[in-house]
Amino acid sequence: MPGFTIAAYVGAAVAEIAGCFAFWAWLRLGKSPLWLVPGVLSLCLFAWLLTLAETDQAGRAYAAYGGIYILSALGWLWAAEGVRPDRWDVIGVGLCLVGAAVILWGPRTA
């Protein structure tokens, strides 16, 4: 069911960005090391959510996830950093999403 995999990927992307931002906040913004606690938990959630992708190969799940992550990162750029993605960002993420769909749902021979 493609919808379930997409939902798992979107959740994984949010968890990964949140976890990575916690480290960014600590190391680059001078926040407390306590930011690492929710950051590590979020990264663990990210890893677990990736296992829910409906594919038997981990590498294929990770490769297809890349497109969703790129889309989410641009969403973060806009929502959290106040920088609106430009047309090249939109074109690039479109290409990545098409590639992710081909990787995940392309016809395979046994």
Rank of each mutant, 00 (worst) to 15 (best):
L97G: 09
E16A: 14
L43Y: 11
F23Y: 14
L95N: 05
P85H: 09
G30F: 01
D86T: 02
W24H: 15
L43D: 12
A7M: 13
P33K: 02
L77C: 11
V93L: 12
F21P: 08
Y62M: 12
A25P: 05
W76M: 13
L36Q: 04
T109A: 06
A47R: 02
G19D: 09
D86H: 10
A13V: 04
K31L: 13
P85E: 11
I103K: 09
L34N: 06
V40C: 03
L34P: 00
V40W: 06
Y62E: 07
F46D: 14
V37W: 10
V40E: 08
A8K: 03
M1F: 00
P2T: 05
D56P: 02
E16K: 05
S72I: 00
V37D: 00
P107T: 03
G92Y: 05
S42W: 04
E16G: 11
M1G: 14
A58Y: 07
L36K: 01
A63R: 11
T55W: 03
L49H: 01
W48K: 11
W35M: 15
P2E: 08
G82W: 07
T51N: 06
A79Q: 07
G39N: 07
G106S: 08
I68W: 13
Y65F: 15
T51D: 13
R60V: 09
S42K: 05
L36G: 02
K31G: 09
I103F: 05
P85Y: 08
L45W: 12
M1T: 04
V37R: 06
L41H: 12
A101E: 01
K31Q: 13
W88R: 14
G99L: 06
L74A: 12
I17H: 09
Y62F: 15
T109Q: 02
L95W: 04
L29G: 06
G30S: 10
L41M: 10
V83S: 10
P85F: 10
T55G: 07
Y62V: 09
L29T: 03
F4P: 03
L36M: 11
I91P: 05
A100R: 02
W76E: 15
L45V: 14
P33S: 13
V98C: 06
L41P: 03
P2K: 04
K31V: 05
A61T: 00
A22H: 10
F46S: 09
